[in-house]
Amino acid sequence: MAINFDPIFSGMQNGPEKIKGNFDKVNDGLGWGEPQNFLNMNGITSEFSQYKVRKDGNAVIVSLYVTGAAIDSSSSVACYLPTSISKRIGYSLSTQVIGRTDNNALGFMNIATQTGKCTFHKPDASGLYIQATIPLV
């Protein structure tokens, strides 16, 4: 069934633009909030270390670049997500996010969901890139 929109738009100045404007307002909930900086960053470059929460509250995207010598779980290199976000990441006590090093090896970031502390592990001294979308509950 085809709908004839001409009668709807005939008396309306900029009708299609107004409808698009209203559609954008409805879809605004699926966009991303403003970039936020991680808390208490130690050993992480500030140019590329942010997170964004989806406006509907169902996901967080993390983007960061970790530099330094080979990092393991005993390293002091860490950052923190606010606990208001980290406690909504899954049902377990920690979550692991995979990343890639400058030398094309795999590394990862562990997120302690109760404290928001993010620690890193990478097999070599190159930088580690993390970019991931994580669902929130």
Rank of each mutant, 00 (worst) to 15 (best):
P123N: 11
E17N: 09
T83Y: 03
G57W: 04
G127S: 12
S49D: 06
A132P: 01
I85H: 00
A69E: 08
Y91M: 11
Q36S: 10
L30G: 14
G43C: 05
Q13L: 11
N110Y: 09
L106D: 13
G107P: 08
V66H: 00
Q114N: 12
T83W: 02
L81W: 02
Y51M: 01
T133K: 01
A105I: 06
S84P: 05
I44F: 06
K20A: 15
T113S: 08
L106W: 00
S126M: 05
M12S: 09
N27Q: 13
K52T: 14
T113N: 05
N42Y: 04
P35T: 06
N42P: 02
G21Q: 15
R100D: 14
M109V: 15
D124A: 08
L128W: 05
I44W: 02
F23D: 14
S86A: 14
K18V: 03
P7R: 04
Q131Y: 03
Y51P: 01
M1L: 06
P135H: 04
Q131A: 14
S94K: 09
T113K: 03
V77D: 07
E17L: 10
D124T: 09
I61K: 03
I19H: 02
A132G: 03
T45M: 05
P123A: 12
S74W: 00
S49A: 15
Y80I: 07
F108A: 11
P16C: 15
D28C: 04
N22S: 06
G127E: 06
S86T: 12
G29A: 12
G11M: 04
I3W: 00
T95D: 05
V97P: 00
K52L: 07
R54Q: 13
T133C: 01
D56E: 12
S10C: 03
L93S: 05
H121S: 15
L136G: 02
T115F: 07
N103W: 03
A59K: 03
D56G: 06
F108E: 09
L64F: 06
P135A: 13
T95N: 02
V77A: 09
D56M: 08
M1D: 08
F23I: 15
I71Y: 01
R88L: 15
A69R: 03
K55G: 08
A112S: 11
K52A: 14
Y129Q: 13
A70T: 13
Q96R: 11
I3H: 03
G57F: 09
F120H: 05
G43S: 04
A105D: 05
F38P: 02
V26I: 15
Y91C: 08
N42L: 06
S126H: 08
Q96C: 01
Y80W: 09
K52R: 15
P7W: 05
G107T: 13
T113P: 00
V60I: 15
